[in-house]
Nucleic acid binder design. Structure first.
Length: 291
DNA sequence: ATAGGCGCCTGCTGGC
DNA sequence: TGCCAGCAGGCGCCTA
């Protein structure tokens, strides 16, 4: 579900509600999802203050007053909200932290599909799991030198590189397609094959598309809502994602849906604005356009 | 190094 | 009307 713009929107909504606030108690921590290598949640979290809420890519880091970090990933269907503590918990609520204040409220994490993650990490665990070897530079802050390194060091398909969180952190399937449309590059190009000018266009499009999506409070296809429980608006401004067979907003050509460019993922693109180079190898799996 | 396939889960949709 | 396969915004592990 949530990619960088959605997570950033949630973080911006939660910061004023959480920063400086003390955790009173763990009302519920699902044993399925809330895991820690070095202790129980109800021992690790109470009485700590949330000093700061950070984001890197799609990961959220709640820095705690004892030096540990509560780490949350929303997966596909995760939601986070601050809720009155007497409000009934909806199904698939995996974490409830009561927060000091009047009235007492709770930070709640809800995730039906359970692809999300909840962790408490110390400094060592943070480096192991989220160091530079595991998580690439923040997509909004990749410099020219980093772009060159990321793209030139890989023979992979460009879209696969954009989706790889070790290469660049924060881009998922929706924004990969939107970014590639924005810069007019075919998703199945080899990363290595980009010319300097194309690399510069791509870098600009990454920042532009993600910034606009943040301004629009993210994209709601189904589950995603902001920290205030309202859907995003950027789904109304998507150019290609989910628009198979609809006319391109730029040239009126029919948007295509391919399933072979990155295996297992749908890829939407405009065949006229993002032409496949004539000498490119056809995708291994026959690319079929869907209705 | 890379690509493909699968598993982890629930819930919704479209086609029969 | 009802059933069920297919699909979904993520990610990590395994294999070849």
């Amino acid at each position: 579900m949530p990619e960088l713009p959605e997570v950033e929107t949630v973080v911006r909504g939660l910061r004023p509600l959480l920063e400086g606030r003390r955790i009173l108690d763990v009302r519920h921590a699902s044993t399925i999802m809330a895991r820690s290598a070095h202790g129980r949640f109800d021992e690790l979290l109470p009485r700590r203050t949330i000093l700061r809420l950070d984001r890197h890519g799609k990961w959220m880091f709640f820095r705690l007053s004892d030096g540990q970090t509560l780490v949350i990933h929303l997966g596909m269907t995760g939601r986070l909200a601050v809720t009155p503590s007497d409000q009934a918990a909806v199904p698939h609520t995996h974490l409830r932290l009561s927060l000091e204040g009047d009235p007492i409220e709770e930070l709640r994490f809800v995730d039906p599909r359970r692809f999300g993650e909840i962790l408490v990490c110390d400094g060592t665990a943070m480096e192991e799991r989220f160091g530079a070897h595991r998580l690439g530079p923040e997509a909004l802050r990749v410099n020219v030198r980093q772009w060159r390194k990321v793209l030139d060091s890989s023979k992979r398909v460009l879209k696969a590189v954009l989706l790889d969180q070790r290469a660049i952190a924060g881009i998922g399937n929706i924004y990969a397609d939107e970014i590639l449309f924005d810069c007019g590059i075919y998703p199945g190009r080899r990363a290595l094959s980009l010319k300097d000018e194309e690399r510069a266009r791509l870098a600009r499009s990454v920042r532009r598309v993600l910034r606009r999506a943040i301004e629009g409070h993210g994209t709601t296809i189904r589950d995603y809502v902001t920290a205030h429980g309202v859907p995003g608006e950027f789904q109304n401004r998507l150019n290609v994602y989910g628009r198979a067979n609809q006319p391109c907003k730029r040239c009126k050509e029919r948007i295509e849906l391919h399933r072979g460019i990155v295996t297992g993922r749908a890829t939407y693109f405009c065949p006229r604005c993002q032409p496949e180079p004539a000498n490119a190898r056809p995708p291994v799996l026959s690319a079929r356009s869907a209705r």
